[in-house]
Amino acid sequence: MRIVAQDVTFEHRVRLIGNKVEDVSEQVLVKRSAHGDERAFAVLVERYKSMVFSTAYKVLKDLSQSEDAAQDTFIKAYAALPGFKGQAKFSSWLYRICYNTCISILRKRRPEVELTEAMAQTIDGPAEEFRSRDIQTVIQQEVNRMPDDYRVVITLYHFDGMSYDEIAHLTHRPLGTVKAKIYRARVLLRERLLERVGWEELKEVMWK
């Protein structure tokens, strides 16, 4: 992994750092990194690169963009570390940077969402109806038009089959907030779909 932040280049060189730095506590590593110690930050990158990439991929579902998001996350984290007060765990703080980075990418790309069996199994009505080209196209368009917060949670829940708890952990939000957002997203999506296709066409494939 190669990460460039401002004028500092972080090579994937943890193997060359030695046990003294690798064995230092996270709190000390964060403090050293905040003062410009790139070797300390390289250790933090090594410790959290898998978590950051995994988080990015769960949101973006794209290998290349997830790699870019992971790199951007560490670049932003390094730049912001002098202002990190330690009020939250470093991993939680880093996670939030990653999540916000992914949301920014989603806003730029406005992806076309593909229907999956996971979503088909969460609705009332035969999966065959959801394979209808016309209905699928309309749903894709309306999901893409939703506010980003709604679009992310409804995609994770209905399209990817993630649980409320998993989404709460991924988005670092209270469970009640996640449930409320998914409910509101479903209501909004149903209202918009009803305006376009009518109840008769929709009732067999939409949530009741």
Rank of each mutant, 00 (worst) to 15 (best):
Q65C: 14
R107G: 09
A79H: 15
Y150S: 12
P126F: 06
K20V: 14
A40E: 10
D165I: 13
G161H: 03
E166Y: 05
E46T: 05
V8Q: 13
K61S: 11
I167D: 01
T122W: 07
F130A: 01
R196F: 00
L16M: 13
A56V: 02
F90K: 00
I3P: 04
Q65W: 12
R2H: 08
H169S: 15
I3Y: 02
E166R: 08
T101K: 03
V43W: 07
K61R: 13
M206V: 13
E11H: 10
L188Q: 02
A34S: 01
T137C: 00
L170M: 01
T73Y: 04
Q6K: 05
R96T: 03
H169N: 04
K203D: 10
T177G: 12
V138C: 05
F90M: 05
A185F: 03
A168Y: 08
Q65M: 14
D124Y: 07
K89C: 07
R186H: 12
Q136C: 15
D62Y: 04
D134M: 05
E22Y: 14
D124V: 14
L94D: 09
F90E: 00
R109G: 02
L60Q: 04
K58G: 09
L202P: 00
E46Y: 10
I135E: 00
A77K: 04
R109S: 01
W207E: 13
H172F: 12
S132Y: 07
Q87L: 15
N144V: 15
I167R: 08
R15G: 13
E200H: 00
A180Q: 03
H172W: 06
R145L: 14
S25D: 03
A168N: 07
F10L: 13
F74M: 06
E114P: 10
Y183W: 10
D124G: 12
R47E: 08
Q27E: 15
T155C: 02
L170H: 01
V152I: 06
S64W: 01
V28C: 03
S132P: 11
T155V: 04
K208S: 13
A88I: 12
L29V: 04
F130P: 00
E128I: 08
V152S: 05
R96E: 15
F159D: 11
F41I: 08
V178D: 08
Y150L: 12
W199L: 08
L156W: 02
L188N: 11
R32G: 04
L193K: 05
Q136K: 00
T55F: 04
W199T: 09
P82R: 14
E191K: 14
